[in-house]
């Protein structure tokens, strides 16, 4: 009390100025929603939907197999400051995400609006009926690579926008507008992509790992087999011979497709045998030079398959 009387007006106004500075700094910080995306496709979508209100960091890049990431120190510090995480879910990040969440902020805990797993919102394919590791590292939750069906992107965009609004209600109008813009653009793109799906129906395909299942399902491509023996188990000579037999029996020349992070040795060998070079599909945003965003990713993928 004594001090208050003595310091008078000038210091008080100084104090208020300082306080307002702190507050504005705080509100500035609040303006930027920190989003930790587990994979580049979600980082790209979060940027589309969050616009200038979000700061997005991708835990992985297109050359990394998202299944085999370490809970490295930099990711712990990102999770610690994150307001939201956006991940595939369905067990894809089971080897590292639990540690990030355990060390992460209270805002990204399961059940909080900041905890967003894409696979929770779409029809998951390949949910196994038998759980036996002799069948490989199968995800009991089903195939987690959900982003390669553009219809899934539409659903996920809507759901994620709802979450953005729950986390940062002040910018609701902005998020709604961003989602509307994205959705109408994306719907137009789907229409364009689906104008001629018949061209893909007769295709057959060999992939490295079941990371293209949603694309294959969408396009109605005939999948002949995987280069790896079983999910998570690298290819062997015997398995490749067997796969070659399947290809020869099918009387078709399949597209051999790998992601930028898959090992290419098996694909190279098969390519030589069937006289058709394998193709590296971008798989995610940044997977090749052309695939700068989700629109490019699908344009490029469809062009490479034609």
């Amino acid at each position: 009390m004594h001090i208050n009387i003595k310091i008078g007006k000038a210091p008080v106004s100084g104090l208020i100025a300082a306080l307002s500075l702190v507050l504005s700094a705080a509100s500035f910080a609040a303006d930027n929603i920190n989003i930790l995306a587990c994979e580049p496709e979600w980082a790209s979508l979060a940027e589309e939907l969050g616009g200038s209100h979000v700061k997005v960091f991708s835990a992985t890049h297109a050359k990394q197999n998202p299944h085999f990431i370490r809970a490295r120190p930099s990711l712990i510090s990102k999770a610690r400051r994150a307001d939201m995480i956006m991940c595939s879910g369905a067990g894809l990040e089971a080897g590292w995400l639990p540690i990030l969440i355990q060390k992460g902020s209270s805002r990204i805990q399961p059940g909080k609006p900041g905890y967003f797993l894409a696979a929770d919102f779409v029809q998951v394919l390949e949910i196994p009926t038998v759980l036996d590791r002799s069948l490989g590292d199968i995800h009991p939750e089903g195939n987690p690579h959900v982003h390669l069906n553009p219809h899934n992107i539409l659903i996920i965009a809507n759901e994620f926008t709802k979450r953005l609004i729950r986390v940062d209600g002040n910018n609701q109008a902005s998020y709604t507008a961003l989602n509307e813009a994205f959705t109408s653009k994306w719907k137009a793109a789907i229409e364009k992509w689906e104008q001629d799906l018949s061209g893909y129906k007769n295709l057959s395909m060999v992939i490295y790992h079941k990371n293209f299942s949603y694309l294959i399902d969408w396009l109605g491509i005939n999948l002949l087999g995987s280069i790896e023996v079983k999910p998570g188990i690298p290819p062997t000579a015997a398995h490749l011979e067997e796969l070659l037999g399947v290809i020869r029996n099918s009387n078709s020349t399949p597209i051999i497709a790998v992601t930028p992070y898959d090992a290419t040795k098996g694909a190279e060998w098969l390519s030589g045998k069937i006289n058709k070079t394998y193709v590296t599909l971008p798989y995610t945003v940044g997977g090749d030079e052309q695939s700068k965003n989700l629109f490019d990713l699908f344009d490029r993928t469809l062009a490479l398959l034609k």
Binding site: V122, Q123, V124, N149, H151, L154, I155, E191, E194, W218
Partner: peptide
């Protein structure tokens, strides 16, 4: 099938 796909065949699981 095509029509349903363009109307979001994947449902909320």
């Amino acid at each position: 099938v095509v029509a349903a796909q363009s109307q979001n065949i994947p449902k909320k699981a």
